[in-house]
């Protein structure tokens, strides 16, 4: 059952908007919203927003709510206003209680991870781990240097929720996105090409090979196409302590450069 606050007159809607705006945080860091707020936002999202924006928040052209991509850069107050008043492009106004409005923004800022229950540690210590003991930078690029055979992480703090980052570090096989799967391609002429998949369709596959070359290969020239569900990244569950993993997550969340 929807709360009564959502079945309200226009006058109440205006009130709810103003009240809520005053209470919403201004930060875009997911750590500043509580687990309860995120979980509440998840419920509101599926009831109110999912039908148009989709489960992953990317059904409306040019907008990806989960990854924080909007038509214009927006602070939390802007998001609250748009939710409450609608847009000229066709989004209807949605009257929410202040708690629900806060929750839905928390849910977006938490990259749609409504079950997130993770530790976010010290980013500075995480950076040292990333470049040192963890050896992450030997495969992942951050900024303008480093290898690109593994996915670059420049914006991973926007693309992944904290829980997903932690899962990727502990058990990469359980978190590797299907598109990123390693491929081993046997060509009709006997050549073997190893790489990471970037895109695929009925007739072709696009990869970055292990020499960091972008290659588009017609399937008619392929004899065998092996797509592995085993990540080339080692599992860190037993290599790093829980505190170290939390610090790494804290660092990765700061990587938000496009």
């Amino acid at each position: 059952m929807l709360p009564l606050t959502r079945i309200m007159s226009f006058a109440l809607l205006i009130c709810a908007t103003d009240c809520a705006l005053a209470q919403v945080f201004t930060s875009d860091h997911p750590g500043q919203y509580t687990q309860e707020e995120i979980a509440a936002g998840s419920r509101v999202y599926s009831a109110q927003c999912q039908i148009c924006h989709g489960r992953n928040g990317d059904q409306v052209s040019g907008i990806d709510l989960r990854r924080g991509l909007f038509r214009q850069t927006r602070a939390d107050e802007d998001l609250a206003r748009i939710i409450s008043t609608g847009t000229a492009a066709g989004m209807p106004p949605i009257a929410l209680s202040p708690a629900d409005l806060t929750g839905i923004i928390a849910f977006m800022r938490a990259a749609f991870d409504g079950t997130a229950s993770i530790q976010v540690g010290d980013a500075a210590r995480g950076k040292v781990l990333f470049e040192g003991k963890g050896e992450c930078s030997s495969c992942h690029r951050v900024g303008t240097t480093g290898p690109i055979t593994a996915p670059p992480l420049n914006d991973i703090g926007m693309a992944r929720a904290p829980a997903a980052l932690e899962r990727s570090i502990r058990e990469p096989d359980s978190a590797m996105m299907p598109i990123n799967r390693p491929v081993r391609i046997g060509m009709h002429d006997g050549t073997i090409i190893n790489g990471r998949r970037l895109n695929e369709d009925t007739a072709t596959v696009q990869i970055i090979d292990d020499s960091e070359r972008l290659r588009s290969i017609a399937k008619r020239n392929i004899r065998t196409l092996e797509v592995s569900t085993v990540s080339t990244m080692p599992a860190y569950a037993n290599r790093l302590t829980d505190t170290e993993i939390a610090d790494l997550v804290g660092y990765l969340l700061t990587l938000r450069t496009r």
Partner: peptide
Amino acid sequence: VPVPGAPGPRIGRTTPINNWTDAV
């Protein structure tokens, strides 16, 4: 989907990259 948070097929296609793949 094969791993948590992975995209699934949607009502329409809005990107030239198929990051959901035939795994879904």
